[in-house]
Simulated assay, not measured.
Amino acid sequence: MADVMIVIPARFASQRYPGKPLAPLRGKDGEAKSLIHRSWEAAMRVEGVSRVAVATDSQEIVDAVEGFGGEAIWTLPECRNGTERCAEVLGKLDAEPDLIVNLQGDAPLTPAYFVESLIERMAADESAAVATPVVRVSASLYETLAADERKGIVGGTFAATSGKGHAHYFSKRMIPHFARDEVDDDKLPLLLHIGLYAYRPAALRAYVEHSPTALEQLEGLEQLRFLDMGAPITVVEVAPPEWDIWELNNPSDVEHVENSLRIMGVS
């Protein structure tokens, strides 16, 4: 069995939501726990993981994590994204795991089977350097996303893949283009990307040896650096959960996240 470590990158500073990792979220019983605590619990529900740690540049987050019994690893504030933070953690470890999973600190609604699907795919394909999940867009979600795009609202990140399941590109615009009236509702070619990654250590080391690329910066998508490097990304399609996967990006998102926690049955 592979030795797998989950790293949860978390920054205290946020332009849209300062102090977001410590924002309280109530579960089905009304108990309030911080966002980073909820994300930690989501990681702990994943089977087949040997270690979970929060990677942060904030003493407040270190104190909060250690307060609920978790492990925190100090990383530099110069890290530009979660992948770079995971790479820094890798360099601090005494023993190198087979896989490092990047579970975002603002995504406590991530189902355990999303992560487990990535681990299984990486175990089955030793040539896979990086893996990430996608969910096929339903007809109803497409209508919402299309309406948002017409208004100039970014509704998600999308993946275009090869027949072998490797990423061609990721974009915050809906890709690929297609004629809606020529495609059945259950066959929409839109894959909504989930910001979750599994890496082999060598891939992380190679990533930080390269400078940020033009497309990575234009789209604001860290995974595009891998594609510019010529490193393939394995895309794993997963079934959507029964609840909405809503990231906590603004204070107005709290209600949506708490509603999903109740549907999940999380205390």
Rank of each mutant, 00 (worst) to 15 (best):
S39Q: 08
E41N: 07
A42F: 06
M44E: 13
V46H: 01
G48W: 00
V52W: 00
T56G: 02
S58Q: 04
A64K: 03
V65I: 11
G69A: 12
A72K: 02
L76T: 11
C79Q: 03
R80A: 15
T83R: 02
E84K: 02
A87L: 04
A87P: 05
A87G: 04
G91W: 03
G91S: 11
K92L: 14
L93E: 05
L93D: 06
A95I: 08
A95E: 10
E96W: 01
L99R: 03
I100V: 10
I100N: 00
N102Y: 08
N102D: 10
Q104I: 05
G105F: 12
D106Q: 09
T110S: 07
A112I: 08
E116N: 10
S117T: 13
S117M: 11
S117G: 10
I119L: 06
E120Q: 15
R121D: 13
A124P: 06
D125S: 14
A128T: 13
A128I: 09
A131W: 12
V137N: 12
S138C: 12
L141A: 14
E143P: 06
T144H: 12
D148H: 08
D148G: 10
E149P: 05
R150W: 07
G155H: 09
T157F: 12
A159D: 10
T161I: 15
T161D: 13
H166Y: 15
A167C: 08
F170C: 02
K172I: 05
